[in-house]
Design a protein around this nucleic acid. Structure first.
Lengths: 156, 156
DNA sequence: CACATATAGGACTATTTTAGTACTATATGA
DNA sequence: TCATATAGTACTAAAATAGTCCTATATGTG
């Protein structure tokens, strides 16, 4: 009922593999072998991740990719945003002027709230968590109580 | 970075309107006037919502649609599922056998975890909350601590 | 300094998903 | 029995996504 794109899925698999060997330099073709994802696709994903500061690239011979930060410092929200861009649950949360009903829309503010709750949930899961098998981790997500006077902003 | 379909967006607008007048009977054409969404589209959304027990339909002359439950008893997760079906963040969370890497996939279990966190977040927002303007509500979402011995199941 | 190895960037095509529409059948109240 | 309204299904068009390919650029090593 909510979905990330296949590319994002690949990104999670690729990054999880890299995070297993956080000090190594990984080439696109190494990662193809390791993950089974086609080379041009791996390449596309790696470029997007580099552009968004999740990976660092080293060009030329003996080049490859490494993590830009420690696995615990990269979260799922960043990964999804890197691949899919800053798109929120509804269009009106990212772009203004697309929806004709926008000015009179009653639910806009509430979607912002939902966005924020979802964002908080996925932000709480780091790449380090992805490396750890499920049963050993515990995740706790807290949606902050909304103040009666402050505006909500969905950072994405 | 995560999105619901336009139809789901329309559903939220339509249902919010109905929830404002929870005792009235609403025809498809009434809802078109009220929301500005085209009639065939409104009609499609209403059928989906009826099929999934969010609305009850009354056929024939003087017919129309009413809520199947009180606004506080219908949540956003149900609405999204009604329109988009039981699709999770990644394909492997809903369907088995689609992904070739499934058997060796290291991240599958973790996506289940993320799914669950997101589901918990959107499940906490009811139609009654959508009727209330943003500033007067407070939402708190808690991701339960994952037991070290129990499996996680994403209900969707 | 040339060459092999890698990434960078962009353009392009095919596929899939989503949105939107239309048509026929069925139910019901007056 | 007729006007009104939903049910179900099939179809078309548009948009988003996935996947591929080509050319340019950087860099370590013999």
């Amino acid at each position: 009922m909510l979905r990330v794109s296949k590319l994002t899925d690949y990104a999670s698999v690729i990054l999880t593999h890299i995070a297993h060997y956080p000090n190594g330099l990984h080439t696109a073709s190494d990662l193809t072998s390791a993950t089974g994802v086609a080379l041009p696709t791996v390449s596309k994903v790696l470029k997007l991740l580099t552009k968004n500061n999740i990976l660092i690239s080293h060009r030329g011979s003996k080049g490859g990719y490494t993590l830009a930060k420690e696995p615990s410092q990269t979260n799922i929200a960043e990964i999804i945003t890197a691949i899919e861009g800053p798109i929120s649950m509804t269009e009106c949360s990212t772009l203004t002027g697309v929806c004709e009903q926008e000015s009179s829309c009653e639910v806009k503010g509430n979607w912002h709230l939902i966005n924020r709750a979802v964002y908080t949930a996925i932000e709480a899961v780091s790449l380090a968590d992805m490396v750890t098998p499920v049963r050993q981790q515990a995740v706790s997500v807290n949606m902050p109580i909304v103040s009666k006077t402050s505006d909500l902003k969905v950072e994405s």
